[in-house]
Design a protein around this nucleic acid. Structure first.
Lengths: 333, 333
DNA sequence: TATGGTGATGTCAACGTTTCCAGGCACCTG
DNA sequence: CAGGTGCCTGGAAACGTTGACATCACCATA
């Protein structure tokens, strides 16, 4: 319980006969002679001195922490994303403060502001509501990297070419003869016209598909519930899910109802989570290359935090990952 | 980029005609009159004042952050655990700093100490090497809650009754006629005799089983690699994995090799991750009740941080979750 | 020999709270 | 009415570092 009295910079200063400031500079390799630096480092090691991050943060205004605000961490793919980002940030000597908006725009807003108040050096966010009115302000007050959709503010961004992803998925389904398709997309109460949904409708129109857009959370239990109702009335020959996690829910519901995939219904996901290849049948999905996203996000954050002022943007391209969950519908061979 | 000049406590003091100290007290509801408190709160709201967490941390010595050090975040179950703990902590107005030891004792040690230097108020850890010699010191210097195994130091703990879990699994396998069993357990270089492994050997002995203990990381790719070699020589009729993630690797390897589960080989997991019920066949596993663990850990941390000095201990009991991945071996009906 | 420049080091005031301590005021009691 | 006794309140000292600025010595150049 005793918080082990740590050596302070003053003690190191005393030990070396220098001023605290000189020690501070020496330890950070700034404007001191080679020789002094050696002496200071030796003394610091001797005393087991380690700068106090809190005091440092107060004086310098930098905390070394980056907020990572996820849309909904129930989503297995977003979990992987968060873990990857945390690891990437750690390699750059920064800590990730991972938070979960649980798919709720209000919560997202609250958490984003808490993170700012917490004085994080930057924010990596996968926005629930990219059009929310608080983003511009937030982007003004700290470096922000947005993942997924373009943010209202001037953030650096790793955006997904959702138009392309949707096209890939819907064309794949149509090429297998599906025309009556259910689309399971996450609830975004405040943004009825988020880009991905718009693309779905446009593409469906172009391809002459008859689609129904249904709301589902990126969460296994909730998605199963929705899918259960959806599969009950056999109006669709295929289901296109806006995350692999939602697709897993469809698998669960299909199993409950004794429906075979892809015999009775075809299923497509979106993300490509490692488990998707392990299901029976394997989940056909749109692969967004999670490693690429992680690397891009971490790199953009580093660049933005280092003052690269111009807006930066990386567009992520999808790949169709064909497995076994899509086949021609029974009734129309 | 402009870090939006925030109101300080001094301005609130000026606005109310009180001293900064009085404002500080009022805002935290200590030793001030009802009336003053109202006035201060009104003024604070008016000015949009919010105490700076950094300055507060420097003065008070408390940061509001709890370190969460996971054994290996590649493990999907541990991901869920971390997400759950983070959420639980947030409800108690604390931030979780989630870090990943990647199954490496040296890394665990380094990260634990970084976390202490980072001045977290407490540490929740799922130890890779619970016997490491640095734990006692660490437990002295801050509140620690250990999950899984008993720590060398005096930490509060949520321990798993691994003896029981192992018994459950091995008896289940034996009751289905398996006697030649491979056990896949995570690498723990420095702790060849960790409790769970000890129990495996003791129980196998008691039940007259012929087991081989094989090392595998809690990571899908690595586990698949190990399982591929293991299943190649058909020496075992069943595989018992020390995490569901490892079991997923066995599923992947079996699929590659064209082996059927449970026809050619039976598989058991340990944890019960949500995906386990979705595989074909469903993974028979030992359920550790992740929600219970999360709640216990968060509660213990709160209690320990609030100065409950006596060592506290919660023992978690497992449940067998029978699905379809265990059957009688072909050769011995 | 003066002059200017450069690089190394020292000084000192922030940074924004919390917390200890002493003092003041009002009210109550004897 | 004096003497306590509790609340409140204000002053001021931490907390440990950084960073702007001053200083100083030394060297090269004019």
């Amino acid at each position: 319980m005793v918080p082990r009295k740590r050596a302070t910079i003053k003690e190191v200063a005393q030990a070396t006969g220098l001023s605290p400031a000189a020690v501070s500079y020496a330890l950070r390799g700034m404007q001191v002679s080679e020789e002094t630096m050696e002496r200071v480092k030796a003394a610091a090691a001797e005393l087991g001195y380690e700068a106090d991050p809190i005091a440092r943060a107060l004086a310098s205004g930098r905390t070394g922490m980056i907020g990572v605000l996820c849309g909904s961490l129930e989503d297995l793919w977003q979990q992987s994303l968060a873990v990857g980002i945390s690891r990437g940030l750690r390699e750059k000597d920064r800590y990730a403060l991972i938070l979960d908006a649980v798919g709720d725009p209000a919560r997202e807003r609250a958490l984003a502001q808490q993170l700012r108040d917490q004085r994080v050096d930057g924010l990596i966010v996968q926005p629930v509501d990219p059009a929310a009115e608080f983003w511009p302000d937030l982007c003004e007050s700290l470096p922000v990297v947005s993942i997924g959709d373009s943010l209202a503010g001037t953030a650096a961004e790793v955006v997904f070419d959702n138009r392309r992803g949707v096209t890939l998925a819907l064309e794949h389904l149509r090429s297998h003869g599906h025309t009556r398709i259910a689309v399971l997309t996450p609830t975004r109460a405040s943004t009825p016209d988020r880009p991905a949904d718009v693309h779905v409708i446009a593409e469906a129109d172009r391809l002459g598909l008859d689609i129904d857009v249904v709301t589902a959370l990126h969460e296994l239990g909730a998605a199963t519930e929705v899918a259960r109702r959806l599969l009950g009335d056999e109006r669709h020959s295929a289901v296109f899910c806006f995350s692999d996690t939602i697709a897993y829910g469809v698998y669960a519901a299909a199993a409950e109802l004794g429906l075979s995939i892809p015999g009775d219904v075809s299923v497509m996901g979106y993300d490509d989570h490692p488990m998707s290849g392990l299901l029976t049948p394997g989940l056909t999905t749109v692969d967004w290359n999670i490693d690429g996203i992680v690397r891009a996000a971490v790199r953009l954050m580093a660049a933005t935090a280092d003052g690269a002022t111009r807006r930066r943007r990386v567009v992520q391209q999808p790949t169709l990952r064909g497995r076994g969950s899509v086949a021609h519908p029974k009734n129309r061979p």
